[in-house]
Amino acid sequence: MTAVGDPGPFSAHLGFRVVRADGDGAVVEADPGPEHLNGGGILHGGYLSALLDSATGWAVHAAGPEGMIAPHVQLNAQFLKAGVAGQPLVCTATCTSVGGRICTTQGEVTQAGRVIARATGTHAVISRG
């Protein structure tokens, strides 16, 4: 498992920073730039989905036993408002249940104090550590 603060290679490539990952959940921040926009000039849904995926992943791994492996098997994202480049994003996520085979999560992305996206996720526990 990666140390808290090290988001992993893909998330680092996108500029994500793990602020916190503990039993209460996870907080991951990002500073979107023009390269994260879609053709319409707003934040790409894939960028927001990757942020939600990362934060909910950190939340489930922080809630489970040390060394647990529980990748996403489903992520349902909802985009509520258009996000923009140049303003920080904060993604807050929690693990809502840790089971022997399945874990569930939820998260939301805010920008300038407004919720712009949210998601629920399901993770398959493939190793308990």
Rank of each mutant, 00 (worst) to 15 (best):
P88V: 13
G100I: 12
F10E: 04
A85M: 02
L14T: 04
V27E: 08
G39A: 13
R20Y: 03
A119H: 14
I102F: 03
H13T: 12
G83R: 00
C103I: 07
A50H: 01
L89K: 08
G57M: 02
A93Q: 05
Q74Y: 03
G67L: 09
I42W: 00
V115I: 14
I126D: 06
L37K: 00
G25Y: 03
A124D: 10
C95I: 12
P9L: 05
A70G: 06
D6G: 03
N76W: 05
G8E: 02
A62R: 00
K81H: 11
V98G: 05
T104A: 11
I116H: 08
S54H: 04
Q78H: 14
T2M: 11
T94L: 10
D22T: 10
L52I: 02
N76K: 11
Y47L: 01
N38Y: 05
D53R: 01
G113C: 09
A62Q: 01
V109M: 06
N38W: 03
T92A: 12
S97K: 12
V98A: 14
L52S: 02
A70M: 09
P32H: 01
H36F: 15
D31H: 08
V28Q: 03
A63W: 03
R118C: 12
R128M: 12
I69V: 15
N76T: 13
L80Q: 10
D53A: 02
L48R: 01
V84C: 08
V90L: 13
L51W: 08
D53C: 02
L51N: 03
G107A: 15
F16L: 10
I126P: 07
G57R: 02
R118V: 09
T105I: 13
A59M: 11
G83P: 00
P7Q: 05
L43N: 00
G67W: 06
A112E: 06
T2S: 13
L37C: 00
A55L: 06
T2W: 14
R114P: 01
G100S: 11
G39E: 03
A3L: 10
D31E: 14
G67F: 08
A112I: 04
A63L: 06
C103A: 15
V60P: 04
P71N: 07
G40P: 00
M1K: 06
P88W: 06
P7C: 01
V18H: 04
L52M: 08
L80Y: 09
